[in-house]
Design a protein around this nucleic acid. Structure first.
Lengths: 356, 356
DNA sequence: AATACTTTCGGGTACGTACCCGAAAAAATT
DNA sequence: AATTTTTTCGGGTACGTACCCGAAAGTATT
């Protein structure tokens, strides 16, 4: 219907070659900083390129090039304790299947959330390969920062998902606003309790560093009550083991000390363990708020043991992370620094409509 | 370095042609539902296409095709009253200059925020052309809904920016969470006032329909105080004229009736008019909160007449809207339904670091 | 059965860039 | 001055798809 040639006269290597009175191949050599061009011609061509502000046609470039961009994904493995990371994995796979035909290849590396060592081992493995981009869940702050630095040195772009480490020159962060989600949790909780009542914050995570992200949620949670001068007593417990019996033990202790706790905020998906405990302990109804759309959590949501789940589209996070890298590498198109995901509130009533 | 052919054997029209024992051209005819193919061969080819789940290579397709995708942008014109829409316009232009070489063309249509008629006239103009996608600021609810319906009929994807009309089957919405931003405004205000004090909400907009979006901010604003059981008295004034003298008149009236107002929340960028009034009236310091990074607003921010501006990256909204359409049309890649922009708080201290 | 017309199809070129291969030119070595 | 070596460069093909043009096959008309 429309004819391109009528409209825009696209200016490409051919035109540059014509103006410089050389062949396309020579222009190409200059563009790719390859050797085999006399200094004089190089200068001349570079000047023309600058003059006309040449922008390569990425479509043609990708089509002709045999180069394959290799992306690495580093996220926690799915464990028996939580299958949260299944969703991001799906997002990665979905993105890959969409773009692999354009010369993108994704390698997935999994680490154990309970082991910094496994994280480090995987980063080493990634860096030993020749990689063009990284998608990363920076669960361990220090190690991730170090990894990011090494990537920066090698000029490898990296994207954070799920939790952010600000000011790390990442290409972007795609995920929740942790503070806000904690704040929201408090807000929800506030509907169910009255002043002077006791609430419990539970952080469950083996590695202390990993804890840091949970703390940001906790911070938001506390901030809410401060902001609203609500005299709520917040009891807090850190549980450093993720197996149920350890959790049970810790919770038993807390509740014996504070039998008047009325609500529990669990800063990650381990809320199901808390729910299990609450059920088994046969306690009166507590208000439970936690994270993530996991089968086990949903089952407790159905039974109304859990009241709210906060969820932030884990699948889409990873999907968009990969796409962002693709965009960046192939289209050289600017990518927004931060992509906060909507903070979704899942209840018994709406869970069946939720899509990750 | 890497060689594609080693790895993935891409399966394309050529392979289909080989299997069907026809030429590439015939396969192409089937793919594009063109005429000139015997029913029998068509069936056969369609079967093969389905069997191998053929996915066309968009890069090659776009490169070879002469088709130009025409996008229309419909946003308010920059008026003497507010230059807010300059930023989105820049975003559009930036996006266009990035992707025009891939066969995307953008036509910008501007309407008068004070005239529904102008909006309708422009939508008609847009629909009379053969358009492949629309970026739209749905300032007038009813008219926009109607326009969206007509686009849907024609299977033209459309993206909302700046304000959303949910459940309208838009490709996506990119912009602020209006309610939350009002909520935030209340939150900020809450720091500066004590209980029992009076605050003023000002909606300034000629067209009542346009008002609707302002109301969502107001709703968020009120919600905050409800949520926190703050006994704040909220006075409200709707101003249906955007010239300063009308605003002045209305405000004078309000303040004479309520001389004890301590803070003002203006639900859009017209906050500068309020600031001007406050200065001229020589009132004691009021807490002023409004919207948008405009020159005039900033000047009042510097003088501390305005305390906070809430801003949501108007340029990036439009930029990302265009890119989303491009993605959708060319890459057939899924686009997230909602892209909420960060809610940025601009103060005297940080405004110089802000980027739209 | 010859002609005209319609339908069906394939060859081939183009899109803009990447990159191979070999030729020409320049420089270095005899 | 003849040669080898090195540097510089251009022709040409490929990427996967779109689409033009003309040929072959089929159908209708005399």
């Amino acid at each position: 219907m429309n004819n391109k040639s009528e409209e825009t006269y696209t200016i490409g290597v051919k035109e540059i070659a014509r103006r410089a009175n050389v062949s396309i191949a020579t222009v190409d050599r200059v563009l790719h900083k390859r050797t085999g061009v006399a200094e004089k011609t190089r200068k001349k061509i570079e000047q023309i390129i600058k003059d006309i502000n040449y922008q390569p046609n990425m479509l043609a470039s990708r089509l002709a090039s045999k180069k394959i961009y290799e992306l690495s994904v580093l996220i926690p493995q799915v464990s028996k304790e939580t299958d949260y990371w299944e969703a991001p994995l799906h997002g990665v796979q979905k993105a890959e299947s969409e773009i692999n035909k354009y010369g993108i290849k994704v390698h997935t590396y999994l680490f154990d959330l309970n082991s910094k060592a496994s994280f480090i081992a995987q980063t080493d493995k990634i860096l030993s390969r020749n990689i063009d981009g990284v998608l990363l869940a920076p669960s361990f702050i220090e190690e991730s920062t170090h990894f990011a630095l090494r990537c920066k040195e090698k000029k490898i772009p990296y994207v954070f998902i799920n939790s952010d480490i600000p000011n790390q020159d990442s290409l972007c962060y795609i995920g929740p606003d942790l503070m806000k989600s904690g704040y929201l949790a408090a807000h929800l909780m506030n509907y169910g309790i009255s002043t002077q009542e006791k609430v419990l914050v539970v952080n469950i995570s083996k590695e202390i560093d990993n804890h840091h992200h949970l703390l940001r949620k906790e911070e938001g949670f506390r901030r809410y009550f401060e902001d609203h001068q609500k005299a709520v007593e917040i009891v807090k417990v850190d549980i450093r083991h993720t197996d149920y019996s350890s959790i049970e033990k810790s919770l038993k202790e807390v509740f014996s000390q504070h039998p008047d706790i009325r609500a529990v905020f669990t800063t990650n998906s381990r809320i199901s363990s808390v729910a299990r405990f609450v059920e088994q302990a046969g306690k009166e109804k507590l208000l439970l708020i936690g994270y993530d759309f996991l089968k086990e959590n949903i089952s407790y949501l159905k039974k109304e043991t859990i009241d709210f789940l906060i969820c932030q589209k884990p699948e889409e996070q990873a999907y968009r992370g990969i796409i962002a890298l693709y965009q960046h590498l192939l289209m050289a198109s600017a990518v927004g620094k931060v992509h906060y995901m909507p903070i979704d509130i899942i209840t018994k009533e709406n869970y069946s409509f939720y899509s990750n």
